[in-house]
Design a protein around this nucleic acid. Structure first.
Lengths: 224, 224
DNA sequence: CAAATGAGAGCGAACGTTCGCTTTCTGCGG
DNA sequence: CCGCAGAAAGCGAACGTTCGCTCTCATTTG
């Protein structure tokens, strides 16, 4: 019975905060984005299963009926969030194109990944995705797809380094790939910048590791 | 009204499958273990929040009322599982004592950790713990406690290696520790043995990485 | 006016937990 | 040895709550 005359979020407002008029489609996209942002906040706070639709509705400032006009189910929101996070994360690996060397490309990509994850505070979401991917087919597909894309960018770099004898020949390419991808995940999940490890020192340590791993052991006599 | 004459799991059976007589306390401990095993199965299958008490009850073959005689809440079961898993995992790091070198100790410990996690199929549980630790205070304490114990075993090994000039001096000890712990986590969560990476090849690649990271770059001129 | 949009009440189901009651084990006086 | 009282253990219905989701209806837009 209480009349809430909330001037914001009225259905037909058709304008954003800056007063700009928006078309229906634009307004719809904007609402979808608001829902995704709010849902991400809730999922980071409580996990995919722990966050309820009511909490998400409260975070958006929207009723359940309204929210269900934009997403058919909670699962659909989860998938959209994972997909968006995945695409967002992919931007970190653009540095791999045009890398001067395999080692430097890996270092730059990893640092971009770590920095991006830390700054956006999405380490909890990433951990949640990783955990959910072990039982949720759609999330697993998203995660694996992302890893596949990253791997496809790293692999030619390493393959060329191998061809030029720049990598310790006892290490096989697929294994090297798997280890590097796992290492990147571990670093991203742990969010070391947030735990007091400065980015520059982290880069130094990571570079030492990568260069050490890739550097051919020239002093070793019998490589055959 | 239906009389279920289930000959198994009778309260006063006072004997295990092998017919051995058990005291009350022994039987109680045995029941607690059965509950933990069943709960772990459910948590791996559905996650901490996704698994219901009813599912756990069904898995144990016990009624809710009976189960609540052993644990006061679902949360208590989660904490007990995390604590047990943590203690179980600690056995992997015994190889650190008496390691011939820092690098070899790290390799052996990491391989033991990876093998243990993979063989026990506890990578999903580990991922779940890692995710839950970001919002659950008790789980976080357990995870951090575990990491602290492992770190306490690794640190003196690395400190001695540093003192003997066996580690690239540009890398600081705390940063090195943080990176190595993160790498170990990443490898454990990814469960590479289950994804087709043989343990021996994994060990070769990991050893190359660790030795490369620790090996001092003697050829580098200006170390100052 | 027809279509679109959103608020909010409400649905059945499932949740974690508790309750009343029965069965079984244990220790003890006889 | 027996019989019995109390503790321990278990059962399963039911609690109140919250879940994901749907429905109704008022309001706005083009």
């Amino acid at each position: 019975m209480v009349e809430l005359s909330n001037t914001e979020n009225q259905p037909g407002g058709a304008e954003a905060m800056d007063g700009e008029l928006l078309s229906r489609a634009e307004r719809r996209d904007q609402q979808i984005q608001r829902i995704l942002d709010a849902a991400k906040t809730c999922f980071v706070r409580s996990g995919f299963q722990g966050a309820s639709m009511q909490q998400i509705c409260a975070e958006v400032g929207m009723s359940p009926g309204a929210l269900y006009r934009y997403f058919p189910s909670k699962e659909a929101i989860v998938e959209a969030i994972c997909e968006a996070d995945r695409q967002d994360d992919m931007t970190c690996f653009g540095v791999l194109r045009g890398a001067t060397s395999a080692a430097e490309g890996l270092v730059q990509a990893a640092m971009a990944h770590i920095t991006h994850t830390s700054m956006k505070g999405s380490a909890p979401l990433f951990a949640e995705m990783r955990s959910e991917s072990m039982r949720n087919e759609a999330v697993r597909a998203t995660v694996d797809g992302h890893k596949g894309e990253v791997a496809a960018m790293i692999e030619p770099l390493l393959a060329e380094a191998i061809a030029q004898g720049e990598i310790n020949p006892v290490v096989e390419l697929p294994v090297l790939m798997a280890v590097l991808m796992s290492v990147g995940e571990g670093l991203a999940i742990n969010d070391l910048p947030a735990r007091g490890v400065p980015l520059d020192k982290l880069e130094i340590a990571f570079r030492a590791m990568v260069e050490g791993m890739l550097r051919p052991i020239k002093s070793t006599p019998a490589a055959e």
